[in-house]
Simulated scan of single mutants.
Amino acid sequence: MITTARLEIRRFRPEDAEAFSAYRSVPEVAQYQSWEAPFSLDQARTTVAEFASGDPLQAGWFQYAIDLDGRLIGDIGLNTFDNLMQADLGYTLAPAYQGKGFATEAVSGLLEHLFTERDLHRVSAECDARNTASARLLERLGFQQEGFRPQNTWFKNEWTDDLLFGLLQSAWRSARTAR
C-alpha cells in the first residue's frame, strides 16, 4: 500500500500470524500496549484475520503491517475519526528492529500518505510518559507535545501519566518544505 526506502506498509496477511505472535509476546513490547504477553498463535491468527478484513479508508481502527523484505517486523494502528479528516496513531516494532530507524521510517511513510493522499488535517498520538523512545520518535517526526495528564489512565494495575502529541498537516508541510 505504501512504500518507503526500506519498507512496505501494507495490509496484514494470514502468514503474518507467527511473527505477530512472536513480537507481541515479548514482555517489553507489551509493557505500554493494551495486550498482555504472551500473545498466543491462536490469538494472533484471529487478530491478523480481523486486521486483514478492515478498510483503511473508513472511520475506525485499521492496522497496517510493517514489512521488511517480506517479513513482518511491526505494525501501525490508525484510528480515523468519523469526519475522515483526523486520526490517532500508535505503533509497535519487534525488538530486533528497534533502534534502526524502522519505526521512524514507517510512521513517516504513513504520515506522508495521510497528509498527501488522504488530505488529513491532523494526526494525534498518546503514550505513557515512561515510554521515552516513543515520545522521542514522535518529536523527531514533528509532533508537538500538547499535553501531560498525570495519573490519568488506570493501566495494568497502576495509574499512568499520559503524554499527548499532535501534528497538523500545515506544520508537517512547512517542516517538509524546510528540509
Results as ranks from 00 to 15, higher is better:
residue 109 G to D: 01
residue 56 P to S: 02
residue 73 I to D: 05
residue 138 L to G: 02
residue 82 D to N: 08
residue 128 D to S: 00
residue 33 Q to N: 12
residue 20 F to G: 05
residue 157 N to K: 14
residue 134 S to H: 10
residue 66 I to V: 14
residue 92 T to H: 12
residue 81 F to I: 04
residue 27 P to S: 03
residue 135 A to G: 04
residue 147 G to F: 05
residue 176 R to I: 00
residue 88 D to A: 15
residue 165 F to A: 09
residue 97 Y to C: 15
residue 54 G to A: 00
residue 99 G to R: 03
residue 121 H to A: 11
residue 123 V to W: 07
residue 129 A to R: 05
residue 164 L to S: 07
residue 160 T to M: 06
residue 141 L to T: 07
residue 68 L to V: 05
residue 157 N to A: 13
residue 96 A to L: 08
residue 126 E to I: 14
residue 94 A to V: 09
residue 163 L to R: 12
residue 69 D to V: 08
residue 80 T to P: 02
residue 15 E to N: 13
residue 71 R to M: 15
residue 48 V to Q: 02
residue 162 D to R: 08
residue 97 Y to W: 15
residue 132 T to C: 09
residue 123 V to T: 13
residue 168 L to F: 08
residue 158 E to G: 13
residue 153 T to D: 11
residue 18 E to R: 15
residue 37 A to M: 01
residue 150 P to H: 02
residue 82 D to V: 14
residue 107 V to H: 00
residue 130 R to S: 14
residue 25 S to V: 10
residue 76 I to D: 03
residue 132 T to L: 15
residue 129 A to M: 06
residue 58 Q to G: 07
residue 148 F to H: 15
residue 94 A to I: 07
residue 38 P to E: 05
residue 19 A to L: 04
residue 10 R to T: 14
residue 138 L to T: 03
residue 24 R to M: 02
residue 18 E to W: 10
residue 152 N to E: 10
residue 169 Q to N: 09
residue 17 A to K: 06
residue 61 W to D: 07
residue 15 E to D: 13
residue 116 T to M: 13
residue 145 Q to T: 14
residue 3 T to A: 13
residue 127 C to K: 01
residue 41 L to E: 10
residue 124 S to C: 12
residue 18 E to S: 14
residue 128 D to F: 00
residue 26 V to W: 08
residue 110 L to K: 03
residue 142 G to W: 01
residue 103 A to Y: 00
residue 85 M to D: 11
residue 122 R to I: 12
residue 129 A to F: 03
residue 98 Q to R: 15
residue 71 R to E: 15
residue 91 Y to F: 15
residue 128 D to N: 04
residue 146 E to T: 02
residue 93 L to G: 15
residue 51 F to Y: 10
residue 22 A to I: 05
residue 129 A to K: 05
residue 105 E to K: 09
residue 41 L to M: 08
residue 77 G to F: 07
residue 13 R to I: 09
residue 14 P to I: 13
residue 98 Q to A: 13
residue 7 L to S: 07
residue 175 A to N: 09
residue 139 E to C: 09
residue 124 S to R: 12
residue 111 L to F: 01
residue 21 S to L: 06
residue 49 A to S: 12
residue 157 N to Q: 12
residue 145 Q to Y: 10
residue 5 A to M: 08
residue 47 T to L: 10
residue 10 R to V: 11
residue 99 G to V: 04
residue 171 A to P: 00
